[in-house]
Amino acid sequence: MTSLILQTASKLIVPLALLFAAYMTLKGHNAPGGGFIGGLCFAVTLILLRMGVGPEVFNRMVPLHPRVLVFVGLAVAFLTGLVPLLMGYPFLTSYVTDLQLPLGASVHFASALFFDVGVLLVVVGTSVGMILRLSQEVEA
């Protein structure tokens, strides 16, 4: 399934797309974006990469089984909820602050970001995992 054009293009596109996915996730609380979109974007990129470089190279580049992502993602999301519970707040209470950076800049930060990262990991793991399994089946 690998073609030269795709192979070449993916080298260019994949880093950009991953950057875009990360941007979408991080910016998601304040502008269109978020864990679901970022996750799907990430997944599409990874699938593109796999189609570009082929299974062997892809497996070397990404040695993780997607189920690890799903597990870690669920754990992160759940722990984000659990931490406020331990501090006496209701489950999943979000903590909002403005982080002061040097040069007078500040970053608005909500702890819900961790939750979003969990969502992202689950979405990536699920989508990539299912597509990969089916393509392995086709290739077999």
Partner: peptide
């Protein structure tokens, strides 16, 4: 709807797997 879209993807994949 946002969650519904992602969920429907998962359900579709599961359904198609069942069909296979």
């Amino acid at each position: 709807i946002l969650t519904a879209i992602v969920i429907s993807f998962a359900v579709m994949a599961f359904l198609l797997t069942l069909i296979i």
